[in-house]
């Protein structure tokens, strides 16, 4: 009985790692807009299924899976470009700009998938067929490919954020007045941030569609919550860290989130209940720092804050 429980737990864990790695690309993408640029970008819910849709369409027209995956990244970047332009050039608030693009993308995604709500990839090669000759379990393959992709993407992203343009993107999100005073074209840096984020989100959508064996037009629903949950979990657990560590901790956050969700799904609940639990997990994670503070101040009287000078 106990042995059974542990085997079960082990399989849940390895499944969560595989799923979490694919979802972590979405989480790191949202991290770029939400934490680095300091905007909540709902384009996510459209660019995620767009990634899946483009990949499915390209695979169905017998293009190599790697091309189909890269195509998804470009599609996502294009979606980010649209949101970025709507936000910066037309001065529409970020939240609305995202909602507008997301809504428009629904129709585009439907067309990309040949006006069907979903597109099966039955009998087609996906990126996860690359290692067929090694006879790994499907879960191992997902972990290997997921890990390689995550390392590659984070490596690129980190190197990019250390360049002149990269620094100016961080500074734009940090202090827009200072950035403009130093000659940074903040419209450009914001648009670039949107593009990078949505490219990664579409990549996540592409990998997940290939792993599921189908692309689904409604797969974007709730993705923003999934991404935010991963970011918040990582911040609660690993506190403040330099950029590179933070990006990796978001990956861990995505895996932990998947693990918690997988445990919940072991309970006798319906498949569609998972979104409800996603929301609950996010609320718990978001309120955690507050609850922690309350508990601390109740358990012991906090010492009076020392008055500090301005310097």
């Amino acid at each position: 009985m106990i042995a059974n429980f542990f085997t079960n737990l082990f399989s849940i864990a390895s499944f969560s790692i595989a799923e979490g790695l694919m979802w972590s690309l979405l989480a790191v993408g949202i991290f770029v807009t939400y934490r680095i640029l300091d905007v909540a970008d709902l384009t996510t819910e459209g660019s995620f299924p767009l990634g899946g849709a483009i990949t499915a369409a390209l695979i169905m027209s017998d293009l190599p899976p790697i091309v189909a995956t890269i195509g998804a990244v470009f599609g996502g970047m294009l979606a980010g470009l649209v949101s970025g332009i709507i936000h910066t050039k037309l001065k529409i608030p970020a939240l609305l700009a995202g909602i507008i693009t997301m809504t428009g993308l629904y129709s585009i995604n439907s067309r990309v998938m040949g006006k069907k709500p979903n597109q099966a990839l039955l009998g087609k090669q996906t990126i996860f067929n690359f290692m067929d000759e090694f006879n790994f379990t499907s879960n191992t393959v997902v972990i290997i490919i997921g890990l390689v992709t995550v390392l590659l993407v984070i490596g690129l992203l980190y190197t990019f954020f250390r360049t002149e343009i990269g620094l100016s993107i961080i500074s734009t999100g940090d202090n827009i007045e200072m950035s403009q005073a130093n000659g940074i074209n903040t419209d450009f840096t914001k648009i670039l941030g949107y593009m990078i984020a949505n490219g990664m989100i579409a990549l996540s959508g592409s990998l997940i569609a290939q792993n599921n064996g189908y692309a689904d037009i409604s797969s974007g629903i709730g993705t923003i919550v999934i991404g935010l949950a991963a970011i918040i979990i990582s911040e609660v657990l690993f506190s403040k860290q330099p950029l590179l560590y933070r990006m990796f901790s978001v990956v861990l956050g995505a895996i932990i989130y998947r693990f918690i969700l997988a445990l919940i799904l072991e309970l006798p609940i319906e498949a569609n209940d998972n979104k409800f639990f996603s929301a609950v997990i996010l609320v718990v994670a978001l309120s955690f720092p507050l609850v922690q503070k309350k508990l601390q101040s109740n358990s012991k009287r906090q010492p009076k804050k020392r008055k500090g000078g301005v310097l």
């Binding site: 002149e164 343009i165 620094l167 500074s171 940090d174 950035s179 130093n182 000659g183």
Partner: peptide, 23 residues
């Protein structure tokens, strides 16, 4: 200043004032 960037990163941004930024 940009608070999340380091002292040298802030100065590097200022060094590029009036010039184009690249990779």
């Amino acid at each position: 200043t940009a608070v999340r960037l380091t002292v040298e990163e802030n100065l590097a941004i200022a060094m590029k004032r009036g010039q184009s930024r690249g990779f």
